[in-house]
């Protein structure tokens, strides 16, 4: 989705050809998690949002916590997350997901509550709510999708846009003298005493996807311990606004983005917890 105004045509799911409908002839090696809604997504081809939605829903399915999980969607391309995740969800105002999640979790402390937010949503307009929620150590998971641009509004500069990166509002490339350096949000969050687990991961290759899945699974498990906020930053892509093919975005993440935003655990629970 490139603009807020764009209206998407209804898409029909094509029937499987007759030859494939005889299930017994195939070995089932992979399927959509039961916690995902069976529908067509509005995301651009190759966009990381759809993949990360699936990873979160796999965790919810594997932990069997569909009935106890509440998700908070942001304003950004993932504003429609509630159309895809088959759980109860709330769509928050731009940047306010952490405040919404705070209230939901405080009132239902035994539930699993997570926010899913882009970098414009979390790192720009919503930075105050995010810092305060993490500082309070709200027992929530914040999934932070860093794709270095405002995807939904068609590719303007975000606080995470790389130095020199061209966007529609930094046509000559981001200049640090004017806008400061790209914000390392995960590192910032790790400074706050309320943060329990902070990591930065990616999803641009199979290995990275496995690591991200594990980080998300751990983050959900940590939530049972009521020890503080889990913050999972994910380096994501935006093929449409980066004006790259999905494969090119993968190389860009490896070659450029990971230099500005190094991968790895930034804050891990100390000592005796052996959830990994």
């Amino acid at each position: 989705m490139q603009t807020e105004e764009m209206i998407l045509p209804e898409t029909k799911v094509t029937e499987l050809p007759a030859a494939c409908s005889r299930e017994e002839e195939y070995e089932l090696v992979y399927q959509r998690p039961s916690t995902m809604v069976d529908t067509t997504m509005h995301y651009c081809p190759g966009c990381a949002h759809s993949l990360v939605h699936k990873l979160i829903m796999e965790v919810v399915q594997e932990m069997d916590i569909q009935e106890q999980t509440i998700g908070i969607a942001p304003v950004g391309c993932s504003v429609f997350a509630y159309d895809y995740m088959d759980i109860d969800m709330q769509e928050a105002a731009h940047g306010r997901a952490a405040a919404v999640a705070t209230a939901v979790k405080r009132l239902m402390p035994q539930h699993y509550v997570f926010t899913y937010q882009g970098d414009g949503d979390l790192a720009a307009i919503g930075i105050a709510e995010t810092i305060h929620a993490v500082n309070r150590g709200e027992n929530i998971l914040i999934v932070f999708m860093n794709n270095a641009v405002y995807g939904m509004t068609s590719g303007q500069m975000a606080p995470t846009t790389l130095t020199g990166m061209k966007t529609t509002t930094s046509p000559d490339g981001r200049q640090n003298e004017i806008y400061g350096a790209p914000m390392k949000i995960a590192e910032l969050m790790a400074q706050l005493p309320g943060a329990y687990f902070v990591t930065r991961q990616a999803v641009n290759n199979a290995g990275a996807v496995r690591h991200t899945k594990k980080a998300l699974l751990n983050a959900f498990k940590y939530q049972q311990q009521h020890k503080g906020t889990c913050f999972v930053e994910i380096l994501a892509n935006c093929p449409s606004n980066w004006k790259m093919t999905p494969l090119e975005t993968s190389h860009f993440i490896d070659d450029e983005m990971m230099h500005a935003f190094p991968l790895g655990d930034i804050k891990v629970p100390k000592g005796d917890l052996k959830i990994f």
């Binding site: 509440i70 405040a99 939901v104």
Partner: peptide, 21 residues
Amino acid sequence: VCLQAESEVASINMVYGAAGA
């Protein structure tokens, strides 16, 4: 639950979350 929020922006959005639940 009584929580002093970091701003009125946060408190009204906390109201949204609680009311939605």
